[in-house]
């Protein structure tokens, strides 16, 4: 089981390659779309590289949920509903939801997707894989 530093180092290398960004831009708090310029197809590329680098399987939608913003039970009038927030916590236990929960507007949603979030996900995922 790699240490948190080793996970961050590998994730940083992956993001440098997938997003053509400089190493020093990939900080734990950097957001994928806002700070690192990721576009939709990049998320699939990142998932691929994570699977290869860490030898894990990432089911579609597990790291980057796909159905949250399109379900009227979860989002209404540009904000997450209580049901939506509960679903978000269920689907993304590896994300830092504290700030978002205080003001759960859609336009802030992409800020959940940080470098640290990916590291947290990988860390949790590796803990479930028998060594």
């Amino acid at each position: 089981m790699p240490s948190k530093e080793e996970i961050f180092s590998k994730v940083r290398d992956i993001l440098v390659e997938a997003l053509s960004v400089e190493e020093d831009e990939v900080t734990p708090e950097a957001t994928l779309t806002g700070d690192l310029g990721a576009e939709s197809i990049d998320f699939l590329d990142i998932v691929f590289r994570l699977e290869k680098a860490f030898n894990i399987k990432i089911p579609r939608g597990e790291l980057f949920p796909e159905n949250l913003l399109t379900d009227a039970n979860f989002v209404q009038n540009g904000r997450f509903t209580d049901t939506g927030l509960a679903e978000l916590k269920k689907q993304m236990p590896f994300a830092d939801l504290e700030a978002f929960t205080a003001n759960p507007v859609i336009k802030e949603f992409s800020k959940l997707f940080t470098v640290q979030m990916i590291c947290n996900y990988v860390d949790a995922k590796l803990a479930t894989v028998p060594s």
């Binding site: 699939l44 590329d45 998932v47 691929f48 590289r49 699977e51 290869k52 579609r60």
Partner: peptide, 10 residues
């Protein structure tokens, strides 16, 4: 071919 699954290939 570095990697391939049902969703894509690198």
């Amino acid at each position: 071919l570095e990697y391939i699954n049902a969703e894509g290939a690198l």
